Each structure stands twice: as structure tokens, then as C-alpha cells.
Amino acid sequence: MLAEGNQSSGATFILLGFSEYPDLQVPLFLVFLTIYTVTVLGNLGMVIIIRMNPKLHTPMYFFLSHLSFVDFCFSTVVTPKLLENLIVEDRTISFAGCIMQFFLASIFVVAETFMLAVMAYDRFVAVCNPLLYTVVMSPKLCALLVAGPYTWGIVSSLTLTYFLLALSFCGSNVINNFVCEHSVIVSVSCSDPFLSQMLCFVIAIFNEVSSLVIILTTYIIIFIMVMKMSSSGGRQKAFSTCASHLTAITIFHGTVLFLYCVPHSQNSWLIIKVGSLFYTVVIPMLNPLIYSLRNNDVKESVRKLMNHQIQFC
């Protein structure tokens, strides 16, 4: 199979993107460039602030720094090619380039899925067992909890990529999207993609269901524990602690589930494109904004850093 698939190395793909709207190419370029700039500054800024401020050297911010790193990488894999295709007429991407984009994007989207689940467990320990929080969330456990999403992301991506490479592609293949996703790659294959499609479906369902089970279980227990608190101030503080994470989870998983529900037909291509755009380009920008705007520690660190820079200047 791989011998046949290797013959596809000379094939090229054409990413149509938003080429059907020629008058909007420049405005869309400016919008996406602004979003990408905010994404890079927001996520890298979050990582730097967390690393520089000793007050933020806690498990919660340790996980948040890795979420920001994953968002930065995920956006960087997708957005530059999207921006390029908006200003150049040649929208081709090589077979190797398309497969590499899919491979890297798969790693980071799977890593983000389970990083959010890890952060839910962290909130569970913080709310339900606050006195032993630092003991339970030891540096060793935190390192293992972070290594898990990255490792599984690499394993999942390698598996899916291996079976994509086993397919054959003929000549120039038109992809009606701005990113090399699994569904659009197999749709232009010259060979039977059934095995690759089934494997992708199984892995995607496993990732989504298992991560949601972890998140829902932890938050159900958190809700029960919070409602048992006698102090209204304690309940408010507990809900405030989880608010940013719940917002990020709702946006990310809501978008993913929405894309699963959209039928892949000729009439739904625009909806799929916009949904893909939201979770690959927009969500990585939103996460640092969600956590920074609702987090007093982060806002205080930003203010101190800005004041320090002003005094230095």
C-alpha cells in the first residue's frame, strides 16, 4: 500500500480557501492578519508572564502556559498559509506540505482537547480538596498530566498520517477549504479511503467522548461540592475559579461538536469552512483573552510588566 502511496509524492493540492470572494481577499487578509497577531502576542505573552512571575508558578498556570503554547503552535501551522493564499494567485501546496500541515495540526488539536480535560481535573482538586492541592498536584504529576496530551496527540497524528500516506493521489487535486484536513484530503484520493476514514472517525469519537466524560464528571462533582458550601462567598469564589475554563471548554467543544453535526454536502461547504476557521484561527486568539480578562493575577502581572517597561523607557 505504501509503495502505491509513495507515487503520490509528486501530486499537488490547490487550497481554494475563500477564492470565490475575490473582492474580499484584501479585507479578509487584514482581518486574519490582525487575529493572528493578537494570537501570537496573547499566547506568547501569557507564557512569558507566567514564567516570569513567581506568583504564577502554580499547577493551574503551568497548565495554562501549555494551553497557550499549543494554541500558538496550532494557529501558526494553519494561519500563515491562509494569509498567503489570500494575496497570491498560486494557491497550490505540495503533497509533502499538505501532509505535514495535517500532521502538525492534528497533534495540537488533540493536545488541546486533552489539555482542557487536564485543566478540569486541576480545578476539581483545587475546589474539592483545597488543603491538599499542592500535595496532590505535585510537580511530577503535573509533568505527567502535560506529557499525556502531547504524547497521545503525536500517536494519533502519526497513525492517521500513516494511513493517509497509504492512499494514492493523482495529479492536481482541488481542496475546497483553506487547511489540509483529513476529510478533504481523502475526498480527492484516487484509492479507496474507507479504512483511513473509519480510523479517523474512531479516533475523533474517542478523543471527543473521553475528554468530555472527564470534563463533565469533574464539573458535576465540583457543582455538587460547591452547592454544599454554607458560605455564599465561598460558592462565588469557587465558581469564579472555574468560569474562565468553562468558557474556553464551551467555545472549543461547542465548535467541534457543531462541525460533527454538519452534513458534508455541496451545500454545507461554507458552514464547514467557517466552523473550521473558528476553531483553527479564532479560538487560539480567544483563549488568552478569556483567561487574562477574567483573571486578576494575570491582569496584575501585565500591569506590573507594563509599568516596568514604561519606567525603563
Rank of each mutant, 00 (worst) to 15 (best):
L167A: 06
E112T: 15
V209H: 00
F18P: 04
L164H: 01
I14W: 12
M198F: 15
F62E: 15
I49R: 10
D122T: 13
I14A: 02
V47N: 01
A204K: 12
Q311A: 05
I14T: 04
L216I: 15
A248N: 03
M115W: 00
V88R: 09
S196V: 11
M1W: 15
C98T: 07
V26K: 03
V256I: 15
N207R: 01
P284T: 00
V302D: 05
F18L: 13
K228R: 14
L56P: 14
T134N: 11
V274M: 01
I251K: 02
S292I: 13
M306H: 05
F62R: 12
P22H: 05
S9A: 09
L24N: 10
T255N: 15
N296E: 13
S168Y: 05
S292D: 00
L24Q: 04
L67H: 10
G275K: 11
M225I: 04
E20T: 15
G148P: 08
F278M: 09
T134S: 13
V146Q: 08
N176Q: 14
L199Y: 00
M52N: 07
T161H: 05
V135K: 11
G10M: 12
V136F: 10
Q236T: 14
S211T: 13
T161G: 00
H264E: 14
V155D: 02
I205Q: 12
V109K: 06
G234I: 09
L2R: 03
L116E: 09
Y133F: 11
L141T: 07
L44G: 05
L82D: 07
V127F: 03
L289W: 11
V302Y: 12
T113S: 07
L160P: 02
S301I: 13
F72C: 13
F223A: 11
G234F: 14
M229D: 06
N53G: 02
Y219M: 06
M227I: 03
G254Y: 09
N6Y: 08
L30Q: 01
Y121G: 12
L41K: 04
V118D: 12
V78A: 11
P22R: 02
H182E: 03
T39G: 01
